[in-house]
Amino acid sequence: MCLLATLRWELGASAATNLPPCCRKPLTVAPFTDQSLFQLDSTWTSDVGREVKLGVFQGRAQVVGLFFTQCEYACPIIVHDMQRLQAALPESIRDRVDFLLISFDTERDTPAALAAYRQTHQLGADHWTLLRGPADDVRELAALLGINYQKDARGQFAHSNVITILNANGEVIRQQVGLNTEPQESVKALVQALAAVPAPPPVVARP
């Protein structure tokens, strides 16, 4: 079972089309766990214009950051911290970890703006997904991640600086708090989460 799962992982990764992780076929179709963020019903739009639910990430570990493209101070550091984390991943799991950026700025961060950001910051389509969504859904996701934010008079967002790590079931396994944080602990958490064999999906699907 484990072998099969690994095989499918590699197939997923090697099918390196130009589509970001959000927009490929989901790897596993196991039912969502109680604590899974992947069960959210909200619909998001990716920088390639496709509408997706977070459930598409089922089966892939995600490193999640909330940001906005016109952020002057913290977000470039958050994105940089995520890139450092990606670079620090051991070879064995590098292909099994995706990176997900979701924007606070529901007005200005159009798919085109996100696509431009991907270009500027060289966020490879092999592992990086950029999403935007309705204000209510961003508020809900932020609430789930324990991220507080507020739009200020200049249209900037003051926000918590938190990078969240989800295991392949969409459960929060670690939060990296603050800026310029060393990635070692997060790498460790990911290695552990991915080493622990994901439980095979129950045969009987829940209603």
């Binding site: 101070y73 913290a74 200020d152 900037q156 003051a158 926000h159 918590s160 600086n161 708090v177 603050g178």
Partner: peptide, 10 residues
């Protein structure tokens, strides 16, 4: 300390 680094613009 921690809270300052947690929050941008605080």
């Amino acid at each position: 300390g921690i809270e300052r680094s947690l929050f941008c613009g605080a």
